[in-house]
Structures are given as C-alpha cells and as structure tokens.
C-alpha cells in the first residue's frame, strides 16, 4: 500500500516529537490493543518509527522518497476519503450536511467570509488545546464547497484536469 492509512497517521500524530511507550500510544490514540500493536509493528517495518522495544519515536531519518509519498496529494486525498466514508457510515451522533445551495454573488462572498472566520477560529482553538486534548478526543472537521457544474464535469472526466 502506498502512503499511510488513516490509523497509521493517527499513531504518528500521537507520538509527534516525543518518545512514547506503547501503553501511552494506546491510551492517547484510543485504538484497540491488537490494532495498535499491528500498526506499530507495520510502521517500524516500513521505517516510520524507531523502537528499542519499549519506547517508540518517529524516525527522523526517513528517506525523502517516503516522505514525498506520504505527504503527496494522492495520499492525503485517499486518507480524506477514508475519513469521510467513515463519517457517512456512522449511524448515530454525527453532523453531516451536503446540499446544493443557491447562492447569489453577495451571499457567496458572505459565505466565503464565514468559512475564513471558521478556519481562523478552528486554527486558534487547535493551538490553544492541542497539548491538553488527546488525539482520540479530537474532532474531525471538514468543510468546503465547489460549483456543481465543476463537480459534474469532474465526475464525467474522472481524473485530474
């Protein structure tokens, strides 16, 4: 598999710049113990993590080609799709809206400005709370919009333009 799975990235984000035991990674990531163990093993074998058997840390000497692969648009695209698919499959306690909305030019500008405000609010909130809130307790937030005409053309073409 190319790139990282969503769960692998969660583990890497859990570890961050620190050196953590598997118990701490398990606690902060919220993953099932077997899943966490499998993923840690996989990440060590693929060279993303180093371990002495007790402590795990991110390998600072990952090759440039691997870094490019996991940070590529394709990889991030695939992870985004995984998460959105997972959100759609959750049955309870989720908020999801996808609608075709008629917006005149003025309202589109207002909406765009609201999204910029939202973006700013979320960035500040994250900076304020990231050291206090374990990764498993964070919220996955997504937003965006596009013209329906562009979307339809994209669906017909079925590839990058």
């Amino acid at each position: 598999m190319k790139g990282l799975s969503t769960l692998e990235r969660v583990i890497l984000e859990t570890i961050g710049m620190e050196s953590l035991t598997s118990e701490k990674i398990l606690r902060d990531s919220g993953l099932h113990p077997n899943v966490c163990a499998n993923l840690l093993q996989s990440l060590v074998m693929r060279g993303f993590l180093k371990t002495n058997g007790v402590i795990y840390q991110i390998n600072k000497h990952i090759s440039e080609s691997i870094k490019e692969e996991v940070n590529s648009n394709d990889s991030k695209h695939a992870e985004s799709l995984e998460m959105i698919e997972a959100i759609l499959e959750i049955e309870n306690n989720k908020l999801f809206r996808l609608q075709k909305i008629a917006l005149d030019e003025k309202d589109l500008k207002i909406f765009h400005a609201m999204l910029l405000n939202l973006d700013s609010f979320l960035k500040e909130a994250h900076i304020k709370s990231s050291s206090m809130i374990a990764i498993k307790n964070r919220q996955v937030v997504f937003w965006g919009y596009a013209s329906l005409e562009k979307l339809m053309n994209q669906l017909v073409v079925g590839g990058p333009r």
Partner: peptide, 26 residues
C-alpha cells in the same frame, strides 16, 4: 475505465485490504 481510474480502484482496494489485515483481532 482510464488507467487513472483503474489506479484509483486499485489504491482503494489496497487500502481496504491493508486496513483489514492490520485490524485483525486474533
């Protein structure tokens, strides 16, 4: 399907398989 679209399907199935294998509960 185009090669790009087939690659997308391949990537999607690869990711599903990989996730499933690593989520194995013994």
């Amino acid at each position: 399907l185009s090669q790009y679209e087939l690659n997308k399907i391949y990537d999607y199935i690869s990711r599903k398989n990989y996730l499933k294998k690593n989520s194995a509960l013994v």
